[in-house]
Amino acid sequence: MLVLLPPSETKAAGGDGPPLDLDALSCPELTPTRRKLAEALRSLADDVPASLSALGLSPRQSGEVERNAALFDSPTAPALERYTGVLFDALDVASLTAAERARADARLAVGSALFGLVRGGDPIPAYRLSAGSSLPGFGTLRGVWRPVLEPVLRESGEPVVDLRSGAYAALARVPGAIDVQVLAENAQGERKVVSHHNKSHKGRLARVLATTTTEPTSVDDVIDLARQADMHVERPAETSLTIVIPT
């Protein structure tokens, strides 16, 4: 099973891996597009005001442009250690055993505006590029990635659980993927979409699916594993799941 995670805007600094080698990343079919975007992002960093504008950043975030300037020179870290934030806190890869981490690296992948898709163990540097950004000469990143990324996901042959947020899901559609929504339910039975808990519970589900010793292959497997982890899961449609959080 392949579990698609959204990236985070925030990235952990540092790393102990060698500088970025695009040829070392998973899905070599994506390498030409990755290279074009990475080189464009690195070149754009020479013009700080233009970078801030293209990336939707404020002058106080100029450090993010410095990261892009060092894209090919800075150390790398495995993707599951590079991304930070609520979802990745709940995933908590640092606490996994060696066997669990191996399964997580094999089953988890992160949708990326820069790399398209990275597997859990792929070595990447810190960078800043969001799905909604528009690099000069490229148009929308959705237009860049869809033609090359959708075939890769379609031809992988793996059942997919799609935990990506809307902007990243738009970079590549995955027909038949299991999509997951998180809703909060109050005492009156009223439900609403939440943000913080959405990321946290998706991180919990990703951890369950990544570490189980059995290989999940169906919607039913996902439901069973989530319920074993004391998650309240409903199935409103054939390939849609809802995690309900009482408030």
Rank of each mutant, 00 (worst) to 15 (best):
187 A>T: 12
187 A>D: 13
189 G>F: 02
189 G>A: 01
189 G>K: 00
191 R>F: 10
191 R>W: 15
191 R>P: 09
191 R>Y: 12
191 R>T: 11
191 R>S: 15
191 R>I: 06
192 K>N: 06
193 V>S: 14
193 V>R: 05
194 V>I: 04
194 V>Y: 08
194 V>R: 12
194 V>H: 05
195 S>L: 04
195 S>Y: 14
197 H>E: 11
199 K>M: 11
199 K>P: 04
200 S>I: 01
200 S>L: 03
202 K>M: 06
202 K>S: 03
202 K>W: 02
202 K>C: 05
203 G>I: 02
204 R>C: 09
204 R>I: 03
204 R>Y: 00
206 A>R: 01
206 A>L: 15
206 A>V: 14
206 A>K: 14
207 R>V: 00
208 V>Q: 11
208 V>C: 07
209 L>W: 11
209 L>S: 00
209 L>F: 07
210 A>P: 12
210 A>S: 01
210 A>C: 11
211 T>S: 09
211 T>I: 12
212 T>Q: 08
213 T>E: 12
214 T>V: 10
214 T>K: 07
215 E>K: 13
215 E>H: 12
216 P>H: 00
216 P>G: 01
217 T>E: 13
218 S>R: 00
218 S>I: 09
219 V>A: 15
219 V>K: 13
219 V>S: 12
219 V>W: 14
220 D>S: 10
220 D>N: 15
220 D>Y: 15
221 D>E: 01
222 V>K: 08
224 D>H: 14
224 D>K: 12
225 L>Y: 01
226 A>G: 11
227 R>T: 14
227 R>I: 09
229 A>V: 04
229 A>R: 06
229 A>M: 07
229 A>G: 06
230 D>C: 02
231 M>K: 10
231 M>P: 08
232 H>P: 04
